[in-house]
Design a protein around this nucleic acid. Structure first.
Length: 416
DNA sequence: TCTGGGGTCCTAGGACCC
DNA sequence: TCTGGGGTCCTAGGACCC
């Protein structure tokens, strides 16, 4: 059986965890630069605040209704997430950390009549040890488990835990679930499926699966089969990323090349750290810069740079970035966003050294990077950095930032 | 009059997820 | 004035190979 554990309103719960006075108070968390709403507590949802809405449109509403607003605080969320995962791991199931606030588990040792108890225990322990409330769905497939998790949240008497042992048990819930709420069915397919008379999860489960494949794709066919109880999507051990992306939009916008260059240098350094963090090397970097606003995209330009050898060396990547930006940058535009992607990643141990040229990423470079990473890990990001990089990698517009209670000594919770 | 058959790799774009 | 930042998988089509 598969289980999914899902933290309730995760970002909002993390904030509330250290502010018990906010129990019962509506909370929203904003995206980077305080742009839009990316998380809401139940109370905020009840007030009708939508996901993704721009902050400036709701400012007045927040004030009027006593909504507590927070800027996103990723050091805090990342650390709380790690704690939750550690608790779940203590139950010794195979686990796949699916996102910052969700984990799939494969449970084989627990008899079906004890599953509910088992899940309740997980929920209880997680709450007690971390302070984060979670919901759990259990079912024979991942897609059904997701559906169970969602359904369990909605029905108060279930206490956030729903076990669906068989398709028969699942059927009433499938009938109640609109097709668009199914894991793997997005906006596009929802429209098309409804057009074809498939309105609920049950409709998709009972549809002709080979027709689904022909008309849509093998991906949706798998979803249909999973809903019908046939497991097609297995637990994955978190493999190394195949692509690393770092991008930010800036406020205020940027026009001069120097500023853009220094921002980009910060992003490249961060990407290189991520690369080394998963012990990979890259051979291709794609840079992009965008100007204009959300309403009129005037100009967005990207450039893919092939490096001569695989590397994880920050300075090599920075040099390529400088070269690339010179080609991308056009004066006279106002840029609002920039970023880069590292592609063509291989595991470090697969590195092949060139026969005739000196190796770019050699032992000395590796040691340099290791030293830099360990210093920055200990003393904070960008303590040791290239001269091109700004002191702070991204100056974000954060009007409502809370302390990083669990990861910075000087921001620990004070009890007086 | 008639012009093969089988494959790989790469890229762009579309769908999805959190 | 102001709208986030990551990721994955699949498919189709073109270039190229023998």
């Amino acid at each position: 059986m598969y289980a999914i554990a899902d933290c309730n309103n995760f970002y909002a719960s993390c904030q509330r965890m250290f502010r018990p006075d906010l129990e019962q108070v509506p909370i929203v968390v904003l995206s980077n630069n305080d742009g839009c709403i990316i998380a809401r507590s139940n109370e905020a949802k009840a007030l009708g605040i939508p996901m993704g809405a721009p902050e400036f449109e709701w400012k007045g509403f927040f004030k009027k209704n006593g909504v507590q607003v927070f800027s996103s605080n990723y050091p805090l969320y990342g650390d709380m997430s790690a704690r939750v995962m550690t608790v779940l791991e203590s139950f010794e199931a195979d686990i796949e950390v699916y996102s910052i606030d969700e984990a799939f588990m494969y449970i084989s040792q627990v008899p079906s009549n004890k599953l509910r108890n088992h899940a309740l225990q997980m929920k209880h322990r997680t709450k007690q040890w971390t302070g984060i409330p979670i919901s759990i769905g259990v079912a024979p497939t991942k897609t059904l488990a997701k559906l169970a998790g969602k359904a369990g949240k909605k029905q108060p008497d279930l206490a956030g835990v729903l076990v669906l042992n068989s398709l028969k048990e699942a059927m009433p819930y499938l009938k109640k679930t609109p097709i668009g709420d199914v894991w793997g069915v997005g906006r596009r397919w929802t429209e098309q499926l409804q057009h074809n008379g498939i309105n609920t999860a049950a409709d998709l489960a009972l549809s002709n699966h080979s027709w689904i494949r022909k008309r849509y794709s093998v991906v949706l066919q798998r979803t249909a089969m999973e809903l019908a109880g046939e497991s097609c999507i297995t637990l994955e051990d978190t493999p190394a990323r195949k692509q690393i992306l770092v991008s930010r939009s800036f406020r205020p916008k940027v026009t001069d090349c120097d500023t853009l260059h220094s921002f980009l240098a910060g992003y490249i350094s961060r990407a290189a750290e991520k690369l080394r963090g998963q012990n990979s090397l890259t051979k291709n970097m794609t840079l992009f810069i965008s100007s204009g606003s959300h309403v009129d995209h005037k100009h967005s330009n990207s450039l893919s740079i092939n490096l001569s050898q695989y590397t994880a060396d920050t300075s090599t990547l920075l040099r390529a970035g400088t070269w690339g930006l010179k080609r991308l940058y056009q004066p006279g535009y106002t840029y609002y966003k920039a970023g880069l992607m590292l592609n063509d990643l291989i595991p470090e141990q697969n590195q092949q050294y060139p026969m005739f040229a000196p190796a770019v990423y050699d032992e000395a470079a590796r040691q340099r990077m290791q030293l830099m990473d360990s210093i920055n890990q200990r003393f904070g990001p960008a303590t040791l950095r290239s001269a091109r990089e700004p002191e702070r990698r991204w100056q974000m517009h954060q009007m409502h930032l809370s302390p990083a209670y669990t990861t910075r000594w000087n921001e620990l919770l004070r009890v007086s």
